[in-house]
Amino acid sequence: MASDAFEELVDTFDFLDDWEERYRHVIDMGRAMDVLDPALQVPANKVDGCASQVWLQTRIDGDVFTFQGASDAMIVSGLIAVLQALYNGLTPAEVTAVNAPTELARLGLDEHLSSQRSNGLRAMVARIREKAAAA
Rank of each mutant, 00 (worst) to 15 (best):
E20G: 11
E20V: 12
E21K: 11
E21L: 11
R22A: 09
R22C: 13
Y23Q: 12
Y23G: 05
Y23N: 13
R24P: 00
R24G: 09
H25Y: 15
I27P: 09
G30H: 03
M33W: 00
M33K: 13
V35E: 15
L36M: 14
L36Y: 10
P38G: 07
L40D: 14
Q41I: 06
Q41G: 09
P43H: 10
N45E: 15
V47R: 11
V47W: 08
D48A: 15
D48Y: 05
A51G: 09
A51E: 11
Q53W: 09
Q53H: 05
Q53C: 01
V54C: 02
L56F: 02
L56N: 04
Q57H: 15
I60L: 11
I60Y: 05
D61N: 14
V64E: 10
F65R: 00
T66S: 15
T66R: 12
F67V: 11
F67D: 01
G69L: 09
A70R: 06
S71T: 02
D72G: 08
D72T: 14
M74H: 14
I75C: 04
V76M: 13
S77D: 12
L79D: 04
I80Y: 03
V82A: 05
V82D: 02
A85L: 05
L86A: 02
L86V: 12
L86R: 03
L86P: 00
Y87T: 09
N88I: 07
G89K: 06
G89E: 04
T91M: 03
T91P: 01
T91C: 00
T91K: 09
T91I: 02
P92A: 06
E94F: 09
A97Q: 07
V98G: 08
V98Y: 02
V98R: 01
N99V: 09
A100C: 06
T102C: 09
T102L: 12
T102Q: 14
T102F: 05
E103N: 06
E103W: 00
A105I: 05
A105F: 06
L107G: 00
L107W: 06
L107Q: 01
L107T: 02
L109N: 00
L109P: 03
E111H: 13
L113C: 08
S114D: 05
